[in-house]
């Protein structure tokens, strides 16, 4: 009570703080956490979501209704872009069984960066399918783990089967400038689509 005058907000949203978010998806070990850590202004934090899911039928020989809980961890970072806008970056597991988490993450997201690992390109398919199906603007960022950009982008584009309209770029997740460029690319892409009226 002694501090009643120290907080002028008094139950109303006084300042117009605008949080925005970009999802960083990709297969296990594709560099999502590294990507977030390369540019976040705070040490990336980890939060967990616990979900109750129907257990796999193959595990359920008795056909009784059993449930299993799954804990999904996501790493996130944040960057104050302006006085009012804070960007949150969410790195999230790319497996299909974690779609429940993606639904929450994608809600209101500006767009997504799908990290592709050239050694395991197939691992990013679930993420690509997901964002395509939900009309979330995304770019594919190819993390060249061998340090050598051996495959041209055109070849990788063909391999992951994304149309020319989806921007693709190389991105060393450890390199801040590469990460920045990936973010610029996805925001530009989202803005272009917004201007073209693709996203209602």
């Amino acid at each position: 009570m002694a501090f009643a005058t120290s907080d002028p907000t008094a139950g109303t949203a006084r300042r117009n703080k605008i949080p925005v978010k970009i999802v960083v998806a990709g297969g296990f070990g594709a560099g999502k956490s590294t990507f977030v850590g390369s540019i976040s202004e705070i040490e990336p934090l980890r939060s967990e979501a616990v979900m109750t899911t129907a257990s796999d039928q193959l595990d359920d020989l008795t056909h009784t209704a059993t449930k299993a809980t799954t804990t999904v961890a996501m790493d996130f970072g944040r960057i104050a872009l302006t006085e009012e806008i804070t960007l949150y970056l969410f790195g999230t597991p790319g497996q299909e069984r974690f779609h429940f988490m993606w639904n929450e993450l994608s809600r209101g997201a500006i767009g997504a960066v799908v990290l592709a690992d050239t050694r395991r390109l197939g691992d990013c398919f679930p993420a690509i399918d997901y964002f395509e199906a939900r009309n979330v603007p995304f770019v594919v960022a190819v993390n060249p783990f061998d340090g050598v950009r051996t495959h041209p982008i055109a070849t990788i584009r063909e391999a992951v089967q994304v149309p020319e309209s989806v921007p693709m770029l190389f991105c060393d997740a450890r390199a801040r400038l590469d990460v920045k460029l990936a973010l610029v690319t996805v925001v530009e892409h989202a803005l272009n689509r917004q201007r073209a009226g693709a996203r209602v």
Binding site: A13, N16, K17, I18, P19, V20, I79, L81, T82, I85, L87, I110, K180, L183, V184, V187, E188, A190, L191, Q194, R195
Partner: peptide
């Protein structure tokens, strides 16, 4: 709750400048 004082386009423009 952010006030809707600007269009989504103008918000994206600010975000782009920011990144």
């Amino acid at each position: 709750v952010p006030e809707q004082t600007q269009s989504f386009t103008s918000l994206l423009e600010k975000v782009l400048d920011g990144v």
